[in-house]
Design a protein around this nucleic acid. Structure first.
Lengths: 103, 103
DNA sequence: GACGCATATATCCACTGTGGAGATATAGTC
DNA sequence: GACTATATCTCCACAGTGGATATATGCGTC
């Protein structure tokens, strides 16, 4: 799972969000360290929807602009859970050997 | 940093290793879950050497086959440390919200 | 009125990284 | 003789990334 995929799914954990909102949420959650390019975002969302990890929830029109909300599915949560566990093991592989600030 | 890069640097934490040894070590360290394709390995090693994160340590000839050992540099350790901290934060973003087995 | 910026979606295209496959070579096993 | 393990290297097709561009609304500035 790519970093973009991981952060998109993570952004959806607190509830459905639209594409642009996911970009903003990811920026907040990572303190500006991770930014997802729009091309990456929409293509990744398409792939996630195809794979059943997210579903298009509803569409809203806010100030003349369409917002399409995406919701994470149970499969999406499962995939994210598995990936987090995988990452945790990768982190431990390093922290077992060298000190890592903040870890 | 890609997963291949991360695991290659991690494999070198316990001391210099040659390419094929890195593949085997990564398999052991990840309980078979991560395997690095040879094409990815050697191209990634080239990139890491270019970037000063690893250096070619020495060459040995064992049973008629040449082994080229790579050693991780201080910069390499620094990069790995930073990446581990980054991953740790990504993991926490998820574990704060949902239970992750083994994390 | 023109311009830039934030919001919001979408696609084009060049670039990078990945990995299956093949090449080359030695040594041991079936 | 064929296959597997060890050991390096490269070719090439494929997938993902992201800057740029397009389209459109609304707001503040010049």
């Amino acid at each position: 799972m790519s970093e973009a995929t991981y952060f998109i799914l993570t952004a959806l954990l607190d509830g459905p969000l639209h594409g642009y909102g996911i970009i903003l949420r990811t920026g907040e959650q990572s303190a500006g360290r991770v930014r997802i390019a729009v091309a990456t975002l929409y293509r990744t969302l398409d792939r996630l929807e195809e794979g059943g990890l997210v579903v298009a929830d509803r569409e809203e029109i806010v100030e003349g602009r369409t917002r399409r909300y995406y919701r994470i599915t149970d499969d999406g949560i499962g995939a994210l859970r598995a990936e987090a566990a995988r990452l945790q093991q990768a982190v431990e592989l390093v922290t077992r050997r060298i000190a890592v600030t903040g870890a």
